[in-house]
Design a protein around this nucleic acid. Structure first.
Lengths: 259, 259
DNA sequence: CCGACTCTGTGAATATTGTTACAATGTCGG
DNA sequence: CCGACATTGTAACAATATTCACAGAGTCGG
């Protein structure tokens, strides 16, 4: 079984949308761009869940657990057993009746489907506080995401050496990304420079961007983007909170006409 | 018009699910917990989009733009105009035919709906590198999320003073949260301690958690949670990337029987 | 004040997503 | 090797979410 193909899969991936769920700030795609091939395309929402399954399987594997049923896995993740089975069924048959799934095998299959059976070189745009913090985060590298090129808009930072990498000018984006065959980027720049940086990345051939800037940036259809935005995530929870809670600090509640 | 009530709203909020969209790692809720009151409940997915609209409106307001149509707003966010109008219609009528929406007014309304017309006190659990970085991030405070209590599991850190806050022991969670009336928390702890910390937070009365730990933690139905997980976000994009791309580093592709 | 436009709010139609239910298959202790 | 039990994969169904499309309002230049 090769990567991504078992059943109804035929190597077509369109869509683009913004992201919220994972990062807390997703906007579902206008949907309608996706299904150029009505059948044969896996729903994006299914793709979004696979990494979550993989994560849990990694923990299970680490704990030496060999087998897991859809029910057990679902219980750990807050997902129904049927949904897990259904999601997996898009790609093939990985389980065994009466037994469940072999943890290591299923993990390997999911990684293969997602393209995680290899390392990905990444660019980091913006080497301010956040960018530097990301550089020191081991988790990325451990999961195969290797930051191998740095860029910054600030001329004072260009040329600086961080670890064994040198900060490049944004002007060098096309050249460097091409030479190092980099297709993914993390963007850690201020909101006001984010769209410009995004456009530069896209022009240089970037196909996937993880955006930490607190602004929703637009990308063309062929580019994937996910937004990491703690504030949006927090703001989507407060709705459910008040009622009796804390000091309502009432007072000037806007009112009156709509114009 | 008071907060959250205009039309079909009647102050019922159930559901809980994990999060993916916004933060990049959402798992949609088992859905079925939500609609105890078939009508009168706003879909969570709508609530998740409101902060995004608000964000864009803030930029428009900052730029001195007074009016915006659903079409313009949608174009900025990659959302259809109809969706914006439909989402808003759950809460009332905020626009004006032939003109659009008054930016400041709509922003105020959305903030009111979401409960953003006041400040929220927050607890931060875990004052390692990530926790400290979050403490220095001004954005949270600017948007009304004020970290006002610190906790750490490590006895060596307990008692340490950071800014004008002292790091408390996890044992003091119930006491401190109660005294300061804190209902929201940010969790920045290692994966292995995350579920335990979550349980402690929940036991202490926390109702909303923003989780930075790279693990999906479970919470009871009455607690909201969002996961910030860059790795999950990245892993949900790689699926769309390969095909011709970079060095496939082929070789040992697992194969063979399912068991 | 008119006529050509613009834009909202929403019923109805579609499209997408999730759950139920069960036949088929396999496990497992004895 | 048997019978009781567990679990998958999926068809059919149910629930949700999105888009279409248009009546009703309001704008705006002259």
């Amino acid at each position: 079984m090769q990567r991504r193909s078992p059943k109804r899969l035929l190597e077509t991936h369109t869509d683009t949308e913004q992201d919220p769920p994972g990062t807390g700030a997703d906007v579902s795609a206008p949907a309608g761009l996706r299904d150029q091939l009505g059948e044969g395309t896996i729903p994006d929402i299914v793709i979004r869940r696979l990494p979550i399954y993989a994560r849990s399987l990694q923990f299970l594997e680490h704990d030496g657990i060999e087998t897991v049923s859809s029910g057990e896995l679902g219980a750990r993740l807050g997902v129904s057993a049927a949904q897990i089975r259904r999601d997996l069924s898009y790609f093939g048959e990985f389980g065994k009746q009466g037994k469940g799934y072999n943890v290591a095998y299923l993990l390997g299959q999911i990684k293969g489907i997602l393209g995680l059976d290899r390392d990905w070189s990444m660019a980091l745009v913006g080497v301010g506080h956040l960018g530097r913090a990301l550089l020191h985060y081991d988790g990325l590298q451990e999961q195969g995401f290797c930051i191998q090129a740095l860029f910054d808009h600030n001329p004072e930072k260009v040329g600086e050496k961080i670890g064994d990498l040198v900060v490049h000018s944004m002007n060098d984006l096309p050249k460097v990304l091409a030479k190092q065959n980099i297709k993914m980027a993390i963007m850690a720049v201020p909101a006001k420079g984010a769209q410009e940086a995004t456009d530069a990345l896209v022009a240089a051939g970037t196909l996937a961007i993880l955006n930490y800037a607190p602004i929703i940036v637009r990308v063309p259809t062929h580019v994937k983007i996910r937004h990491i935005d703690p504030i949006i995530a927090l703001q989507s929870m407060t709705y459910y909170l008040d009622s009796d809670q804390v000091t309502p600090r009432n007072g000037s509640r806007r009112n009156g006409a709509k114009s």
